Simulated assay, not measured.
Amino acid sequence: MRGRVLIVAGSDSGGGAGIQADIKAVTALGGFAMTAITALTAQNTEGVHGVLPIPTDFIRQQMEVVLGDLGADALKTGMLHDSPTIEAVCDALPPGIPLVADPVMVAKGGHPLLQPDAVETLKRRLVPRAALITPNLPEAEVLTGLRITTEAEMQAAMPALLTLGAGAVLLKGGHLAGPVLVDLLGTPHGVIRFEDARIETRHTHGTGCTLASAIAAGLAQGLALPEAVARARRYVRAAILAAPGFGRGHGPLNHAVTLDPGRIA
């Protein structure tokens, strides 16, 4: 086990996204996952049915006691549903540890997970602290005010996203139509293009959480950012292809695709 990752995000009672997906992804890639839970959700594959926020003082306490004892090699943030939560988390972020920030705004089923008035706080406080942000196209549109409906528009939006202050941006193109899925990794040194054939499936719940945590695990283990992104994308793709088919809605991935239970049989 190598690479300590502190994940600051919401819980998904259905186990497919949020903290549950984060822990599974980091563990499956050989890292050690630690958590600070920002909210509880009553959630399944069909949607989010309720949200219970965690008091900000307790969010900070979770972070502080973990960092003070166990330490961390990378940080990952997910659901930070309002401005006070974002402020509290940013106040507790330690310097010098790479942060992967997934700007979670809307659940797969459409339920809002970030209050509209918190977007500016996210841009002002969290994004400039991040080594990498991982917006999908709707999130990138909110962050930039630009319309992004083609790969060319993805390329054109990258300067505006980088201007927000993160060290790098992984702009995920899964919302575009077509048989090919393209993600763009933008840094001050240029843009790296990743391409795969699209997998036609409804079992994609938690892909954003899983990808961001898998990248954080790579950074915690000393991988350079492009290699961490490439490995995380391979892992998510394998987990989608091996999805167990659970639930009536957007089903979960098989986060354990890298594991071999037969080794301890």
Rank of each mutant, 00 (worst) to 15 (best):
residue 26 V to R: 01
residue 127 V to Y: 03
residue 119 V to L: 15
residue 127 V to E: 10
residue 33 A to N: 00
residue 158 M to E: 09
residue 162 L to S: 08
residue 102 D to E: 01
residue 113 L to E: 09
residue 20 Q to K: 03
residue 132 L to Q: 01
residue 99 L to N: 00
residue 119 V to R: 07
residue 107 A to F: 13
residue 50 G to K: 02
residue 133 I to W: 11
residue 150 T to R: 10
residue 100 V to M: 14
residue 93 L to E: 11
residue 22 D to L: 05
residue 60 R to I: 00
residue 22 D to H: 05
residue 56 T to D: 09
residue 73 D to M: 04
residue 100 V to N: 08
residue 75 L to D: 08
residue 107 A to D: 07
residue 40 L to V: 15
residue 117 D to Q: 13
residue 24 K to P: 00
residue 88 A to D: 03
residue 160 A to R: 14
residue 48 V to E: 11
residue 27 T to G: 05
residue 139 E to R: 09
residue 22 D to I: 14
residue 26 V to Q: 02
residue 18 G to M: 06
residue 71 G to K: 10
residue 144 T to F: 02
residue 43 Q to H: 13
residue 77 T to I: 07
residue 152 A to R: 13
residue 96 G to Q: 12
residue 105 M to P: 08
residue 52 L to M: 15
residue 84 P to R: 06
residue 79 M to N: 12
residue 75 L to I: 06
residue 151 E to G: 06
residue 63 M to N: 12
residue 59 I to A: 09
residue 85 T to W: 10
residue 37 I to Y: 01
residue 26 V to P: 07
residue 109 G to H: 15
residue 153 E to N: 07
residue 71 G to Y: 09
residue 48 V to C: 11
residue 49 H to K: 13
residue 141 E to Q: 13
residue 76 K to E: 05
residue 37 I to A: 07
residue 148 I to R: 08
residue 45 T to G: 11
residue 99 L to A: 00
residue 39 A to E: 04
residue 44 N to Y: 01
residue 117 D to F: 04
residue 96 G to N: 14
residue 78 G to F: 12
residue 75 L to G: 12
residue 139 E to A: 04
residue 65 V to K: 00
residue 32 F to C: 06
residue 57 D to R: 13
residue 142 V to Y: 08
residue 118 A to M: 05
residue 71 G to W: 10
residue 106 V to T: 15
residue 52 L to R: 15
residue 60 R to C: 06
residue 38 T to P: 03
residue 150 T to Q: 15
residue 33 A to S: 07
residue 84 P to F: 11
residue 97 I to G: 10
residue 160 A to C: 05
residue 122 L to M: 15
residue 127 V to Q: 04
residue 17 A to H: 13
residue 131 A to N: 01
residue 120 E to I: 09
residue 61 Q to E: 14
residue 87 E to S: 14
residue 123 K to M: 10
residue 22 D to E: 02
residue 55 P to A: 05
residue 114 L to K: 07
residue 156 A to S: 13
residue 47 G to H: 10
residue 58 F to I: 14
residue 125 R to H: 13
residue 113 L to Q: 01
residue 30 G to N: 06
residue 85 T to P: 09
residue 97 I to P: 03
residue 155 Q to N: 08
residue 143 L to M: 02
residue 63 M to Y: 12
residue 99 L to R: 00
residue 37 I to D: 03
residue 70 L to H: 07
residue 133 I to S: 05
residue 76 K to S: 12
residue 94 P to F: 11
residue 161 L to S: 12
residue 152 A to I: 03
residue 46 E to W: 02
residue 21 A to C: 02
residue 115 Q to I: 09
residue 116 P to T: 09
residue 140 A to S: 10
